[in-house]
Amino acid sequence: MDQELHYEYNVEGGDFSRAGYASSQIKKILKRLNIDAGVIKRTVVACYEAEVNIVAHAYSGAVYFDIESNRLKIVFRDEGPGIEDIEMAMTEGFSTASEEVREMGFGAGMGLSNMKKNADQLNIESEVGRGTRVEIIINT
């Protein structure tokens, strides 16, 4: 890309009817820019999981999407309970999702491993009682 672009989206905790909105906007932008299809696929999976985690586990948050010269940087920042043990949270199958959320088919404990598999870099910082910052880097 010769031009650098920046976009932001809000994400509301608990609002499942809008879950995936930011990810679908990001997908549309990448398609319009004719980004490689494989890159779009990986970005969409990683973004959706990070977005849904704000909806399912936090109170409110925002997505910061940057298109840089040779990579995409997507940061998901939320105010929420935070993650006590990030390593444990990364384990496939680990989930603290409520019964209600599980009935919808979330809470398999696969989201973070999907992010890990699809991102070129995944950086998670979290403070218990305050919130979480998830940074996804995809090389283009």
Partner: peptide
């Protein structure tokens, strides 16, 4: 599948 993350992945 009935698990959304499974389908996503």
């Amino acid at each position: 599948s009935d698990l959304l993350s499974d389908v996503m992945g």
